[in-house]
């Protein structure tokens, strides 16, 4: 499994948690929604954290590009975090419309972000980053344990 494969797989795993939470809100099951939403945000924060703290710096060091794609990706991560916060707020207030509307916005934001990563950035990373993919996979799982 190379960097692209396991990071893209993690995108898919996060998507499943996202739709689980969304389905629960639509069905009015707020307890299940809250549980799935927390699991989703945890999974997302791990993914974003691994990128921001390990993958992006390695990419920047290897290529010398500091203000290019990784800067854009970090900015989009912040936009996603704002939406997580707004979804959490809607969940607390049990406001179905606001949750679903914000979730839809996040979905498009997140997916267009994932497209850029999976179709361009991860490809470059898989080719250019010096350590082999297993070491990255290990870093990814260790991040989870912290």
């Amino acid at each position: 499994m190379n960097i692209k494969e396991f990071m893209a797989q993690d995108h898919k795993d996060c998507d499943r948690l996202f739709s689980k939470a969304e389905n629960a809100v639509a069905g009015g099951d707020w307890a299940a929604a809250s549980q799935s939403f927390n699991a989703f945000v945890d999974a997302m924060e791990r993914h974003l954290g691994v990128e921001e703290e390990a993958l992006f710096p390695a990419f920047e060091q290897e290529t010398g590009i500091l203000t290019g794609p990784t800067e854009m990706m970090r900015m989009e991560h912040q936009q996603m975090r704002t939406l997580f916060a707004e979804m959490g707020e809607a969940l607390q207030q049990k406001n179905t419309d606001d949750y679903l509307g914000t979730a839809e916005t996040l979905l498009i934001m997140m997916q267009q972000h994932n497209m850029k990563e999976e179709q361009i950035l991860y490809n470059i990373m898989s080719q250019r980053l010096p350590e082999d993919a297993n070491q990255w996979l290990e870093k990814f799982h260790n991040w989870e344990k912290r």
Partner: peptide, 10 residues
């Protein structure tokens, strides 16, 4: 503070 931007369904 950052203002809240209305979501897509609004």
């Amino acid at each position: 503070a950052q203002l809240k931007v209305p979501h897509m369904r609004k």
